[in-house]
């Protein structure tokens, strides 16, 4: 039986080895404390695998278009919010937030993607609150990021399921 912490850590493992690592630790009689320790180490060591692209060409293409959309719409919205009048570190925080949102597009791990979507809003809210200059519309920067991180994969999955499989014998 796995603890709640273990279940959260298992969700953060890359999909490729999630079942294998969890199964190994269940099979091996280890204490909950050791299991959580092992899982935490595995999450850190295998974290880059969450960002390995394994989709076909069309999916990769769609992600780069989404990344460009986040960058352009996010920066335009930040400019429109008056970010140029804010201190440099606030602007840097907003740029970091946009970059984080783009990084979120390239993970297959849903838990990490949803966490990034939440962190983006928290960071934008913090930037808005601590900024000495009023930036009332700054949180709107997070809207395209939220839409593409949370809803995008669902639409892509639906589109993929509807399109006929390509392969030998398929008409061009």
């Amino acid at each position: 039986m796995t603890s709640r912490t273990s279940r959260v850590l298992i969700e953060l493992l890359p999909e490729k080895y999630r079942d294998e690592i969890a199964g190994d630790l269940i099979e091996e009689p280890v204490s909950t404390k050791r299991m959580n320790g092992e899982l935490a180490v595995a999450v850190v060591r295998l974290f880059p695998l969450n960002f390995t692209l394994r989709e076909d060409y069309d999916m990769k293409h769609a992600k780069w278009i989404a990344a460009a959309a986040i960058a352009v719409v996010g920066l335009l919205q930040a400019w429109d919010s008056g970010i140029l009048g804010a201190p440099a570190w606030i602007a840097a925080l907003v740029v970091f937030t946009i970059a984080l949102g783009i990084a979120g597009l390239f993970t297959e791990n849903e838990s990490i993607r949803l966490s990034i979507a939440a962190i983006v809003f928290v960071l934008l809210f913090v930037a808005r609150v601590v900024s000495p200059v009023r930036l009332p519309e700054l949180t709107l920067v997070g809207l395209p990021i939220f839409l593409l991180l949370v809803l995008g994969p669902r639409f892509m999955g639906l589109a993929k399921a509807k399109s006929p499989p390509r392969g030998p014998g398929t008409a061009a």
């Binding site: 490729k16 080895y17 294998e20 690592i21 190994d24 630790l25 092992e38 180490v41 595995a42 999450v43 850190v44 060591r45 295998l46 695998l49």
Partner: peptide, 11 residues
């Protein structure tokens, strides 16, 4: 040896 080290090396 941690299981994470084993799997990352195998990968």
């Amino acid at each position: 040896v941690s299981l994470g080290a084993v799997y990352s090396t195998l990968d």
